[in-house]
Design a protein around this nucleic acid. Structure first.
Lengths: 193, 193
DNA sequence: CAAAAGCGTTGATAAATATCAACGCTTTTT
DNA sequence: AAAAAGCGTTGATATTTATCAACGCTTTTG
């Protein structure tokens, strides 16, 4: 169960975890299963947990006045699910996070994460890298959104994230790209000619 | 000159810098002046420097096939200017960063920054916080972009970033929001009624 | 197994936004 | 001081994207 997480940490650090450190990781992260559609975080709650996905797929989204969902993040295996904004700022979340497929997670509290960062240099290094990469990916996506047409955005997305295309239905991809499902359907029709 | 930076670090850490640590900061960060329009980073170069703005204003932008600039970031006093993507991944930057006003910076190399993070716990703490906040701000902006109309996006931006509205011309704000200057002009006209 | 919900597609139409061109005003450059 | 460049605005028009409604197919649910 925890092997994936250990391997993941070791891949993202310069010095691998010692046996004792591994034990601390195992003791800290609790396995948890979510059924499809089950919430991991609900809008309005302060995010107190971080989940590492062992198996499954999740999504993070806001809901506007009209009740329309807007996907800000898609998660699959080896991704960290949580609302960093809420967890860091200790503010109520503007997002929901739920399971799109039945999902197995390893869960730690935000407080536990801070403790691990203190105690394990490797863990601190890994989370720092995650923070940096999250920003990088987000900025790229932002740049793509303000620079490109919907069509180009979809092409780029499909090229760089084929895993997501296979895994999530089109209407979620459309939402992630900031367009309607109808528009995406038409874009794909055009492109296939 | 370095007082702003020292104060900034102390504001973003739990334990203030010691005298020795302050000396190390001062020794590491070199003052640098940029004239208006001067580049701090050019597209295609690997970002090797990080600049803390003492006085002035800068912008970071990509240029598309048609030669149109798309602003991904605006910087003023107490902001850190750099392309994190290029600096972390060691890849050629897709962005330009230049001075919008005459600007005074304190500059360190990316390598120096890594050294400081190793040596000074406070500095490590501060940069971690910066990484987290950058992501948070970016994700908020992304959510706003995919969820709202141009009008709402501008309202939100004006409400949360009045400093930028005063400091940068409208066509840069428009680009930052992902719309044309004409559209922003019309939005403002509407809103003023 | 039947009913319902989820998904992708298509058509007709409306709304949002971009494009192109022109103008007046201010600031910067020569 | 004159010329050029930068900025914001407006009008006319084109393009992109959203909205609303309907349909067929598949998957899930009762």
């Amino acid at each position: 169960m925890h092997e994936n997480l250990i391997a993941y940490i070791n891949q993202h650090t310069t010095s691998p975890l010692t046996i004792e450190e591994e034990a601390l990781i195992v003791a800290t992260f609790q396995p948890k299963k979510l059924r499809k559609k089950q919430y991991f975080l609900q809008e309005g709650d302060v995010c107190k947990y971080v989940g590492f996905i062992i198996k499954g797929a999740m999504r993070q989204y806001s809901v506007d006045d009209k009740g329309i969902e807007h996907i800000v993040q898609l998660y699959i295996e080896n991704y960290w699910a949580s609302d960093r904004e809420s967890a860091v700022m200790l503010t109520p979340s503007r997002y929901n996070i739920d399971a799109w497929e039945d999902t197995e997670l390893l869960v730690a509290t935000v407080a536990d994460m801070l403790g691990l960062i203190e105690k394990l240099p490797s863990f601190g290094q890994m989370t720092r890298l995650m923070d940096q990469r999250s920003f990088i990916v987000s900025q790229r996506r932002l740049n793509s959104t303000i620079s490109n047409t919907a069509e180009k955005r979809y092409e780029e997305f499909a090229a760089f994230h084929p895993q997501f295309i296979q895994r999530f239905p089109q209407h979620l991809i459309a939402s992630f790209l900031g367009i309607t499902k109808e528009t995406l359907s038409r874009i794909r029709k055009q492109a296939s000619k």
